[in-house]
Nucleic acid binder design. Structure first.
Lengths: 341, 341
DNA sequence: TTGTAGGCGTTATCAA
DNA sequence: TTGATAACGCCTACAA
């Protein structure tokens, strides 16, 4: 074993370079305020000692952490992890580290509380629509007014900064794609409407149907909860129906894949017997059987945009009291799960 | 706008409760050392003021951060994100936050350096086989000897703690599955051998072939780099061959899916014309066309195990100078992409 | 059982 | 241009 050497501090560097700690600090943060000669001596001392800054001390002094907390229901979901990847990259470019938290245990409001006021993080990126009550909390008079950007899920509170997609309009476009293919009997597999995004998608579906003068048949409006399992369940419901739609718009890709899977087991082929369009364009979508037609969410853009907005707010580039609302556009990706009626 | 109130400190709580800051600190860290009556008064003051601890100050004083850094080449890959999810959960259970870093830019050794010595993190979870030189660095006399667990990729340095899977044995099992199905003409799609895991898988393949007395035909040993694109390229090579294998063992699922995809475009059906087995069991695998037979990596286990091991080392439960090496077993998952010859 | 005091490593202010 | 000093908020000897 090598003798454990204490991590060098700024004092050690100062001693080595024969200057004061203040000067070392200046060399590191604003080199132009130090004469070239001492600067070089200090830099040499830095590498001689192997000094690196102690972030805890710096955070304490500066009252910031140069860290962002990203909170999502489930990071294991590729859906969020794509966003996280973009967040990490965008953060890194501006010198911020990323802390991640997922929903654990029952109480949705508590699990973040620890982070929020502990100044571990300078801002919060919230990717969880079920935490809307928190959105209000974070800004009210009790809290320390932590900069917050809600992304990917619609937060009812208009005072919260947000980066979203045009769920309703995108759902309408998805539906019109089916209508354009000649379908007249179209169903929708939705998710509980407490999730605003899914609710919006349903509204978009209904709007497109009405515009086209097509009936919205209650027995074709199915309920899922955005899991594969509920897609399978919806497939079963569909099989039990006397009259079936010729096309389905599913609230997300998982449900679409589950639905298709279940129908195939019963000998019904997609797209021959039923056209299906999903939503999200998760990685699986392109390699499902059949490759899934879907509305692609620009997840990298969402992550990057949300991160940069948050950092702008943290650093005061954007005034925090004038909420930012950005809407990104989802894009139709036509593959093989939809075809003319 | 609400007036911005300063975040309450331990002093504010002390004042509110008419005790000293030391007592408040004690109530929070070792309640049993404080009389019940004052404890209750302090607790009341805590919630009255909305106090939460300042982590930076605590870290500075305690010389730890209660934070772990997880580093992976690409968190967007569902593969790593599943592990990350397990890491977050395991860390959370023991009171640790998770910081994430991905490989950004060219220099693989530099991007971690900043974290390592800045005491932002108490330990490092390394999921990147290409960083093996670093493994040595982290433990050598120059550095602060940051606790490190390498997982998921094989690190040559035996002094580094590791949590791995039995790549070679698992690859042999995969190959034997094909042989057991009656296949005699079997190829392998590999990845560059600088990645130890993939190299081991190749060795396992060769071993199983030799055991069965089957020839290893050079033109059936194809080179990829674990991306979908190289799976497609391998498919093209396969199509150009005069004599084709009846089964392929692919180094990972992405390549397997790409290969199958390309063959189907040319009218060759899997498993009818070619059986294919992958490796990893990524989420896509079960819903690919056809559902993919593969070797499942116990990714949750890897994440959980690695995290707990790392925390044990950090907290001195395990002596850090006696490297821990854990090998987990990959499991054969038979789906529809393999069938009797 | 509780309080006092000092220091963790950094940066900002002020003075030289 | 540089240095001395104080303070960020917390924990822990030590003393009472």
């Amino acid at each position: 074993m090598v003798p454990i050497r204490k991590t060098p501090t700024i004092q050690d560097v100062a001693r080595e370079a024969n200057v004061s700690a203040a000067t070392v600090s200046r060399v590191l943060s604003s080199p132009e305020r130090v004469s070239k000669i001492t600067r070089e001596r200090v830099l040499a001392a830095v590498s001689a000692t192997g000094y690196t800054i102690n972030q805890a001390a710096r955070s304490l002094r500066l009252r910031n952490a140069r860290t962002i907390l990203m909170a999502a229901p489930n990071i294991g979901n590729p859906y969020y992890s794509t966003i996280l990847d973009a967040v990490i990259r965008a953060g890194s470019e501006r010198g911020y580290s990323i802390l991640v938290a997922t929903r654990i245990g029952g109480d949705p409001d508590r699990w973040l509380a620890d982070y929020l006021h502990s100044n571990r993080a300078d801002g919060l990126l919230l990717f969880d629509g079920s935490l809307d009550t928190f959105g209000i909390n974070a800004r009210n008079e009790e809290g320390p007014n932590l900069p917050l950007v809600a992304a990917y899920d619609e937060i009812p509170d208009p005072r919260v900064n947000s980066v979203l997609i045009d769920n309703r309009a995108a759902a309408a476009r998805a539906t019109r794609h089916l209508i354009g293919l000649g379908h007249r009997q179209i169903g929708h597999l939705m998710s509980p409407s407490r999730n605003k995004s899914f609710h919006e998608r349903r509204l978009g579906f209904e709007q497109a149907m009405r515009e086209a003068g097509l009936p919205i048949r209650p027995e074709w409006m199915m309920q899922g909860d955005h899991t594969l399992a509920t897609g399978i369940a919806a497939g079963e419901q569909l099989l039990a129906l006397r009259e079936r739609p010729t096309a389905m718009f599913c609230g997300n890709d998982e449900m679409a894949i589950g639905l298709i899977h279940r129908l195939r087991l019963a000998g019904l082929d997609c797209p021959r017997d039923l056209s299906v369009i999903g939503f999200d364009d998760i990685a699986v979508a392109a390699y499902a059987a059949p490759p899934l037609t879907t509305m692609r969410q620009p997840r990298e853009d969402i992550g990057r945009f949300a991160t940069n907005t948050l950092i702008d707010i943290i650093e005061g580039v954007i005034p925090g009291d004038d909420p930012v609302h950005v809407t990104l556009r989802a894009e139709l990706v036509v593959r093989e799960s939809t075809r003319p009626a």
